[in-house]
Nucleic acid binder design. Structure first.
Length: 563
RNA sequence: UGGGGCGUAGCCAAGUGGUAAGGCAACGGGUUUUGGUCCCGUCAUUCGAGGGUUCGAAUCCUUCCGCCCCAGCCA
């Protein structure tokens, strides 16, 4: 599934920079904060950063932006590395942490003070906010703005030594309190945090802020193009200001692009964490989650996600991509690669009354009509089978051309059968058995007389079938935009789809599927793509439905229901 | 009501003065032992709106409208 990557404005910039000789090598970075699991939105960034680096003969660093010890944990570091690798990208030797640069960042802070470009401010957090002004009113200078160089150095050193409590002092850039860009109103560069860091432990009592650490980390690593999302556009002047004051030799270009939004889900770590902590999903890797670990467990392949990231493009306009795009990508991939198998999710017994009780056939089935090299297998057939309850109707409507009384259909790879009666439970009136006769001449599914049949049904031999747990997933939210009513005070959790998980009581799969490894992708013919869940135990297989097949009959029914 | 961005079909998105790519979705039709796949076809006289420049404008100028982001010692 090779994709011709479509051009985008970032690739245009990079190509120009190479053509002009500004750079002879492209260096990008993916800079996650280890405070949550990666989601499909991060995949867009990963594919972009590693993608352009790879395509233009450069490299991409994985850098943990670990400047806030209060939120970050090693568990997240591990999952992020797993997910990036799973997606198929390799940072090689270039694994970094912003915390690797804390010493250097501190020295740069000293230099800024010496150049008269930074000062220690002893206003309280509340006061700093008040002094900042508003969107329409300029801020006012801090009374500490003109501290002497010596005093600044002394305080900054004391902050580092841990002589103050949180919030007592900060190091601020001395820029312009009346700037229309609020980010330039003497932004905080270092703050006191009395928490252990997951890597540097108790070595530091001050930590750099994002604006300060990010540009300098980029510079230290020799990044050429620093790609980030739109909300940082206002920060770019600060990014540039810091690097300019310090006269660093490497000054990367920050370029912003629009982050990914998908309908019927949420894409913020905070909201995803809330779903987990409220128990609305099982965990970060719940197959309903848009996390990479969730998608992986759901059965999405790395190829399908990379393809998705290719086709959605990269631009600067806010966007909400349709879930059907993602589904298209996984179907496209699995159609080519997933072995086909028969499974019945909502079974009803079908008895072939003219088929001897003790007889048993072994019928040849094709593993993947899209790929002959995947070969064939033998499937057992007998007098009693399970078929899908939805494949039979006593009084079929116009466009229903599956099994019905008096009608002949094909059982896939087996025989033509004709229905001549049903057995019902007298108390519930529910059909318990469908009675058919078969035509022995049609073995394999073809009739020698050229007789046509309108439908082919999947089935499983009742005596041979393997029981399985099958988890059917639907969209996590009932609305395209679950956050649309937040201004009205309605929390997004109100719109969680109560039917996002459905586990039918009795599912049967054809035998021979007992020992599949978790993660194995299959197509259950006519139903969808399914994947072996890690909950699988010997003799007790568990499957997740990755995505349904496109279903023309379902569409017809839906249309009929609306009219 | 300050500043920074963005408006091309239901959705994503090319297009950068020469007469609106492509994909998803949808809708027709063909093939088919999966109502799947595959194949063929339909789907923007118009690019947020108005005005202007030009032989020619989605592209340039201008006015207006709409949406998003920013007042964390989060990233």
């Amino acid at each position: 599934m090779e994709t011709n990557k479509q051009s985008n404005f970032i690739r245009d910039i990079i190509e120009k920079d190479i053509a002009s000789g500004k750079h002879d090598q492209v260096v990008t970075r993916f800079p996650p904060e280890p405070n949550g699991y990666l989601h499909i939105g991060h995949a867009k960034s990963i594919c972009l950063n590693f993608g352009v680096a790879g395509d233009y003969g450069g490299r991409c660093h994985l850098r943990f932006d670990d400047t806030n010890p209060k939120k970050e944990e090693p568990e997240y570091v591990r999952s992020i590395m797993d997910d990036v690798q799973w997606l198929g990208f390799d940072w090689g030797e270039h694994l970094y942490h912003a915390s690797d640069y804390f010493d250097q960042l501190y020295e740069y802070g000293v230099e800024l003070i010496k150049r008269g470009k930074a000062y220690v401010c002893s206003l309280s957090p509340l006061e700093i906010r008040e002094y900042r002004g508003t969107l329409t009113e300029p801020g006012t200078n801090s009374p500490f703005r003109d501290r002497s160089l010596e005093e600044n150095l002394e305080y900054f050193g004391a902050m580092k030594e841990g002589r103050f409590g949180e919030g007592a002092h900060v190091l601020r850039a001395k820029i312009d309190m009346s700037s229309p860009n609020i980010n330039l109103r003497d932004p905080v560069l270092f703050r006191i945090v009395r928490s252990d860091h997951h890597r540097t432990k108790d070595a530091w009592h001050i930590y750099p802020t994002y604006d300060y650490a990010h540009c300098l980390s980029d510079s230290i690593e020799g990044i050429t193009h620093s790609l980030c999302s739109l909300e940082f556009q206002d920060h770019r002047p600060l990014y540039d200001w810091i690097l300019d004051q310090l006269h660093v030799r490497c000054h990367p270009r920050q370029i912003e692009f629009a982050r990914l939004n998908l309908n019927y889900t949420v894409m913020s770590k905070r909201k995803l964490a809330k779903l987990v902590s409220r128990g609305l999903v099982r965990s970060w890797d719940d197959p309903r989650m848009p996390t990479l670990s969730g998608l992986r467990r759901r059965g999405y392949t790395p190829q399908s996600i990379r393809r998705f990231c290719d086709i959605i493009g990269v631009a600067k306009s806010d966007n909400v991509v349709d879930m059907s795009m993602l589904e298209h990508c996984i179907r496209e991939d699995l159609n080519k690669t997933a072995p086909r198998v028969m499974a019945v999710l909502n079974p009803v017994k079908l008895v072939i009354t003219n088929y001897p009780r003790e007889r048993e056939d072994k019928l040849e089935a094709i593993n993947n009509p899209e790929d002959e090299s995947m070969g064939k297998r033998m499937v057992p057939f007998s007098r009693e089978l399970y078929i899908e309850r939805d494949d039979f109707m006593e009084e079929p409507p116009k466009k229903f051309y599956r099994l019905a009384p008096g009608r002949e259909v094909r059982l896939r790879y087996a025989y033509y059968v004709t229905c001549h009666g049903v057995v019902k439970d007298p108390s519930t009136n529910e059909i318990t058995e469908i009675h058919c006769t078969y035509d022995p001449e049609t073995k394999g599914g073809d009739s020698p007389d050229g007789r046509k049949v309108k439908a082919t049904l999947h089935w499983v031999s009742a005596g041979h079938a393997q029981k399985a747990e099958v988890r059917l997933y639907d969209r996590l939210f009932s609305r395209p935009n679950p956050t649309e009513d937040e201004k009205k005070g309605i929390d997004f959790l109100e719109y969680v789809n109560p039917d996002s998980l459905n586990i039918p009581d009795a599912c049967f799969i054809e035998p021979g599927l007992k020992d599949l490894a978790p993660g194995t992708n299959l197509q259950f013919e006519r139903l969808g793509y399914f994947c072996v869940d890690p909950d699988t135990k010997p003799g007790k297989p568990v499957f997740n439905r990755t995505v349904t097949l496109k279903d023309a009959w379902a569409r017809i029914q839906k249309k009929a229901g609306k009219n």
